[in-house]
């Protein structure tokens, strides 16, 4: 019976890997101004999938060391499972589209669901590296091995976290308060035409009294490519309405000459500073990113 039991060294390896991997997932669950997924069921779902991912990463090395090579193929099952996480996240967010103040938009949903998938890989990789470290260092004192695993696992987490971290709107553009002006039924922000949907006197008065607006001014000309993208602007507008609520109207508009973007709404609660903070922290979507340096690349076949 004892021969079938797992050795204490492998047990330590697996437990350390699972703990490190799950910790990595816990640290990537954010409860920031975006408030997603900071609700109890959201936490639970992602912690459990993170734990499963960490378990798969942690048992890979012991499986290899016991010459159980077939068992390593379950990593492919893990990848399939993570893809399902992405798929279910996407479906869930798409189902919610009609209930929000503004649409998230397909580009933002794609970005969020990919992030959720990738964070499971965080858990898997950190767990894998942690258990691999214990196997490699193989010290007499087991606690020293665990310490080494914690250090390498932490370092791995830091590196992949840095690698996967994207920019936000505030990194590539100035976000300033815009001055609202209602002329008849037309709405202008800093002189930029936004909408003519304020046809009734109530609407015009409401926007004059309670409307707030920001103008996004890109630092460089090439940043306009990303900011002008419809999906990116929709994401910014969504975050703005999500953070402040929308009592009635919300608009986004781009200005063609200087590439300025207007975001304006009538909030339920909150002030202009909160709006500026929210817009600055809206992530730049992966799908709209463009590197201007890559455009000047001198690979073979280019002049």
């Amino acid at each position: 019976m004892d021969t079938e039991m797992i050795s204490s060294q492998y047990l330590v390896m697996i437990v350390t890997g699972i703990v490190m991997g799950t910790m990595a997932r816990i640290m990537t669950i954010k409860a920031d101004y975006r408030q997603y997924p900071s609700y109890p069921n959201g936490y639970l779902i992602h912690l459990v999938t993170g734990f499963v991912a960490a378990s798969l990463g942690a048992v890979a090395i012991p499986a290899l060391m016991t010459k159980n090579f077939v068992a390593v193929t379950f990593l492919t099952v893990a990848i399939q499972q993570f893809r399902d996480v992405r798929k279910s996240e996407r479906e869930s967010l798409k189902d919610l589209e009609n209930t929000e103040f503004a649409f998230r938009g397909d580009a933002y949903i794609d970005g969020i669901s990919k992030t959720f998938e990738s964070r499971n890989y965080f858990a898997l990789i950190v767990a894998l590296v942690s258990s691999l470290t214990i196997q490699i260092v193989n010290l007499e004192q087991i606690w020293l091995s665990i310490l080494a695993a914690i250090v390498t696992g932490g370092l791995t987490f830091y590196i992949i976290n840095r690698f996967s971290k994207g920019k936000s709107v505030g990194d590539i553009a100035d976000v300033k308060q815009g001055e609202i002006e209602v002329k008849g039924s037309e709405l202008f922000v800093d002189g930029i035409y936004v909408s003519n949907l304020l046809g009734s006197e109530n609407a015009a008065k409401m926007f004059n009294d309670e409307g707030i607006a920001v103008v996004i001014n890109p630092h460089e000309e090439h940043f306009r490519i990303g900011l002008d993208n419809f999906g990116q602007r929709q994401a910014i507008l969504f975050e703005a309405t999500r953070a402040l609520g929308a009592k009635r109207y919300h608009f986004s508009r781009k200005e063609y000459d200087d590439g300025r973007i207007v975001i304006t709404l009538i909030p339920i609660a909150g002030d202009i500073n909160k709006l500026i903070h929210t817009v600055r922290n809206t992530p730049i979507l992966e799908s709209v990113k463009k590197s201007s340096k890559l455009m000047n690349t001198k690979f073979i076949g280019r002049e």
């Binding site: 003519n196 949907l197 304020l198 046809g199």
Partner: peptide, 27 residues
């Protein structure tokens, strides 16, 4: 004209556009 537009917009939960020629659209 204003009153009718307002009533329809309220009932239909819609927005109002005042065109420069004086017509109102409920959208």
């Amino acid at each position: 004209q204003k009153r009718i537009t307002q009533d329809i917009a309220k009932a239909m939960k819609a927005d109002v556009v005042k065109m420069k020629d004086g017509d109102y659209l409920v959208i």
